[in-house]
């Protein structure tokens, strides 16, 4: 819709496939200079030690369909399969997924100012934040949109840019306290590749999102989980969640509770309550805590089965 006010924006944005940026160009939310990523790393390669390296321009569809990746890192493949739609997955890149901007409907509306557009406050906080955070870690209440970031957090992935090497997801995206940005990349800094560390064998992993329809919806809450169960006991548990905070979060209290415990439904039901430990939901987002607990329970039960 066409209104007179257009937000000021000067910083150049990088464009990979454009699946996020094109919409913001059309709406007028993104008006600054544009830099097309002319060349970059595409595809999946494997180290002798079992590490996988994903080029930043690898498409989400390629990650979702890669059989070896699916066997070695099922949580990564399952996450990729859960993203967007087939026609978007065929275009969208891993690097772009990590560097995409917020889905907040105030941010996406060209007629409204907000922190991420240079404004002085977050209009969603006092306004309609139905899809906002339940872990309120900074001035902006929009959850981070990247599903792959959740999965990469669960796998301790390291990110390389043209300028820096070995960044963790937390270093890439920040701690959520900077309401103005969706990531901590420097202006013009481009992600080049993502390295997944080698894993111990015997673990299971998966991903699931809670949404209202059956398919193709931004996650209300999403969880990527890895577990290793030995002799009916959780030897290793890793839980990363999205949709709930300005950055993907590890559910460490829940992980700790499960460590060394029997992998049965009763233990899981009890431990899932810890998934929301430390949460401070907004007036409209309390439901996300129920969904988070339900999702953790769902995923752990399936992995323990």
């Amino acid at each position: 819709m066409n209104v007179t006010s257009t937000p000021a924006q000067a910083v150049a944005e990088l464009r990979a496939a454009g699946t996020d940026l094109s919409e913001r160009r059309r709406s007028g939310v993104s008006t600054g200079p544009l830099i097309d990523i002319a060349s970059g790393r595409y595809g999946i390669s494997w180290g002798d030690d079992g590490t996988a390296t994903l080029g930043a321009l690898t498409t989400i569809a390629a990650i979702a369909a890669d059989a070896r990746l699916g066997a070695a890192y099922p949580g990564i493949a399952a996450s990729a399969q859960g993203i967007a739609t087939p026609q978007v997955r065929n275009l969208a890149t891993l690097g772009g997924n990590l560097a995409q901007r917020s889905r907040c409907w105030y941010f996406r509306n060209p007629g409204i100012d907000c922190l991420k557009k240079g404004g002085s406050n977050c209009p969603a906080r006092s306004g309609n934040h139905l899809y906002g955070v339940a872990f309120d870690l900074g001035p902006c209440v929009a959850p981070h949109p990247s599903t792959m970031a959740v999965a990469l957090l669960a796998y301790d992935a390291r990110i390389t840019t043209e300028r820096r090497d070995g960044l963790t997801i937390t270093e890439l995206l920040g701690d959520g306290s900077n309401g103005r940005a969706d990531h901590a990349l420097l202006p013009g800094e481009m992600i080049t590749k993502i390295v997944l560390p080698a894993l111990q064998t015997g673990e299971h992993a998966t991903y699931k999102r809670a949404i209202s329809r059956t398919h193709a919806e931004w996650a209300l809450v999403e969880v990527c989980a890895r577990v290793e169960i030995v002799d009916g006991t959780f030897r290793f548990v890793r839980l990363a969640a999205g949709g709930i905070a300005p950055v993907p979060l590890r559910l460490t209290a829940c992980e700790r509770t499960l460590q060394g415990m029997s992998a049965n439904a009763a233990v899981i039901a009890e431990a899932a309550k810890q998934a929301t430990s430390g949460a401070n939901p907004l007036p409209m987002t309390g439901y996300k805590l129920d969904l988070l607990q339900g999702l953790v329970r769902d995923i752990l039960e399936r992995l323990a089965a």
Partner: peptide
Amino acid sequence: LLDGEPVVSCLLPAGA
């Protein structure tokens, strides 16, 4: 279809 695979043309820069 882009090289046989379905894609959304509303987000795809023509130059790509």
